[in-house]
Design a protein around this nucleic acid. Sequence first.
DNA 1: TCCGTACACTTTGATTCCGAACGACACCCG
DNA 2: CGGGTGTCGTTCGGAATCAAAGTGTACGGA
Lengths: 190, 190
Amino acid sequence: MPGHRSIAEAEKLAAAKLGGFPLRRDQMAAVANIHRAASAVRQHLENSVLRGADLTWTAFVVLWVVWVWGESETRHVAEEAGLSKGTLTGVSRTLERRGLIRRSSHPSDGRLVLLSLTDEGEALMRQVFPAFNDEEAFVTERLTAGECRGLAETLRQVVLQVEEHGEERRLALLDGAAPARRRSGRRPKS
Amino acid sequence: MPGHRSIAEAEKLAAAKLGGFPLRRDQMAAVANIHRAASAVRQHLENSVLRGADLTWTAFVVLWVVWVWGESETRHVAEEAGLSKGTLTGVSRTLERRGLIRRSSHPSDGRLVLLSLTDEGEALMRQVFPAFNDEEAFVTERLTAGECRGLAETLRQVVLQVEEHGEERRLALLDGAAPARRRSGRRPKS
DNA sequence: TCCGTACACTTTGATTCCGAACGACACCCG
DNA sequence: CGGGTGTCGTTCGGAATCAAAGTGTACGGA
């Protein structure tokens, strides 16, 4: 019982749950659908083009970033791909093991690590990307090009809002309270 | 160097990379921004309201689904939350350990497992959800209510397209070829 | 030159995640 | 009522995930 139908119903149920609480329905539906769409698109892409190339979503994104930007420092790749540095370390090592990516150290700054595609990685992207773009077109088939532009623009507003005011908002919400440790994560050596 | 600025530039670089290949830019930007927005929103929510309650995004989604739908079979919860059955097993067990969820077996069908919130889980949701909804409003602050509705509607078209034609499309793309095993995953016992 | 601070990547620990294999149960049909 | 067929949740293997701790390099000032 997938998708859009349940949203409306879930909203009603949630509203009932919350009684008189002033629920922001439109905003809730928008956010919920962003995640529904993202997950549906990702799953479709993984199970169509990516699966055949034996790439995960993340692996593809990393390859794509390095491909279009050329040899890059890992921190920029992580930023652009939307991963933590720690995750990128693992992913790029997997990619290196598979011979798709090369890791080299910066000639003058020993702290930096540069990522670049191997010939094999380059060849793979040249083959996979067109198919990927075809599926992007497929999933947006019900929208006109103009609607796609509008959608991108609207989503950009959301991204900007979080990027420009998210930090400040989080601080305000915490209001001096302890930053709340995560359940997982490394513990002190002691 | 975040976000929207790099998209335009990345597109140009990608177009150059692909030479004369007919690149669907608008569709590409739309899909890319869906994921950018989803990840930005998720991160903001995790680091604001969820962190304090010591919940991961996934844990919250599962609680939310069970909360609004009431006691439910795990397969429905997995579907609604957008997870595989296997993942839900692990997540619901974590939630059970923390005393937020109850797992009971179906009275007449021994295969089914039913999930429901404990009193503690119920109390937690009553406390966390309003804050969550506030942040949904925050991230969409630059949009009017009408734009939110439009956004939700547009995204719904994407979800519907994948849900209604994705399977068929994937089959057409494979065209009889072997379904391509995943690198990971359980191996036969032999 | 030595020191302290700042930065950049890696390691670590606890989870989450997927999909295929698996085992238990349900149901149809003879 | 016994077997085949199918459905459900669970287990498993490999990978991805984050945040914080740790390691190592860079660089400015004393």
